[in-house]
Design a protein around this nucleic acid. Structure first.
Lengths: 151, 151
DNA sequence: TCAATCAGGACTATCGCAGTCCGGATAACC
DNA sequence: GGTTATCCGGACTGCGATAGTCCTGATTGA
C-alpha cells in the first residue's frame, strides 16, 4: 500500500479546522477540537508553516491562520509540505548519484511518467473537494467541551 | 515523499527482464542479469506469482514466465501485488473499525476521491510505457558475464 | 535416484516515522 | 518592565514496517 504518513492525514484535518474559524487559532485549541494530541498538532502546524500553507503569529494571542482558501490548496501541496516532494522511489530523482547497479538497472528514470501522473492527480484535488460531501454532523465540532476548549 | 517499496521497483525490473527472453527463466539467472541479489529476486518472483502476474514452473528446468504482455500490466497491478491494495492511509478503508477519534475526525472517508485519482493514474500506465524510451544501451543486458549467467 | 528449482515460511537488522519534550525567541498584556 | 502565552527549532526515543536472508519441504526432469 502506498503509505501516506499519518502526519499528512492530521494536516488535512488541521487545515480544515483552521478554515472553519475566524482569526488565528492556537495549537492547544486545535488539538482540543480535533482530538489530536497537542504536541503532534504543534508539529504539524510548524511543518505547514514552513511550507507556506499557514502563517503564524507569535506571542500572546498568537496562533495560526490559513494562507489561502481550502479551494486553493491541492492535496499535493499538503503532501509535499509534510512528506517532501512527491516521488515514488529514491531511485528516481533525476540528479541523484545513481543506484548501485547503475549500468544494469534497466529502469533508470522510467518512474518519471508515473510520478507525473500521480502528481497531476493529486494536484487536481483540493481540500475543498475533500471537505465537500461531509456529513453535516461532522462539519461542525461535535463535543461542546471541545468547542469551548477551542476558544 | 510517497514511499514506494524497493521491492516494487525490483519487481518492475524483473518483469521487464522476463519479457525480454523466451521460455522460462530462473531466479538466479534473473538475479545475475539484473544485479539484484538472488534471494531478493526469488522473493519478488514468489510475490508476483501469488499476484498472478507471472506463472511458475517447478522442478528442474523450471522457472518463471510472464502471464501477460508488458502492455497489459498496469503499474497499479504491480504495486498491488507487492505492496497490497493501493490506498493512502489506514484511516481510509470503508469498513475499518474506525479511528480513535471517530466522532471528532472530520475527514472520515474523505480520502476516497484521492485514492481513486491515484488508482486511475496508476492504472493508465503500463510496464510497456515505462519501458518505452529506454536508452538502447539499457535495453539489452550490458555485461556479457551477466548475459551468460542468465543462460 | 539425483539435481535443480520453486513454495512457504521464519527470522533479523535496519530504517523511517510517530510522538514527545525542551530551551529559546517573540509578542501582548498588566 | 515583568509576566504570560505562544510559536520556533531542534533533539530524542520507541515502535513498526521493510529489506534482505535463510531454511526446510515439495515438485519435476534427467
Amino acid at each position: 500500500m502506498l503509505r501516506l504518513s499519518k502526519l499528512t492525514d492530521y494536516a488535512v484535518v488541521v487545515l480544515v479546522r483552521l478554515s472553519g474559524m475566524e482569526g488565528v487559532q492556537t495549537s492547544p485549541g486545535i488539538a482540543a477540537a480535533t482530538g489530536i494530541p497537542e504536541p503532534t498538532v504543534a508539529k504539524v502546524l510548524k511543518t505547514l508553516a514552513a511550507g507556506d500553507l499557514v502563517c503564524s503569529q507569535r506571542g500572546a494571542k498568537g496562533g495560526y491562520r490559513l494562507n489561502r482558501d481550502l479551494s486553493a490548496i491541492p492535496i499535493a501541496d499538503v503532501i509535499a509540505a509534510i512528506d517532501g516532494p512527491i516521488a515514488l522511489t529514491a531511485c528516481v530523482e533525476g540528479s541523484s548519484t545513481g543506484c548501485e547497479s547503475q549500468g544494469l538497472c534497466p529502469m533508470r528514470g522510467r518512474w518519471d511518467p508515473v510520478n507525473d501522473a500521480i502528481h497531476k492527480a493529486l494536484s487536481g484535488i483540493t481540500l475543498a473537494d475533500m471537505q465537500r460531501g461531509l456529513l453535516p454532523a461532522f462539519r461542525a465540532p461535535v463535543h461542546q467541551a471541545a468547542l469551548q476548549a477551542a476558544q
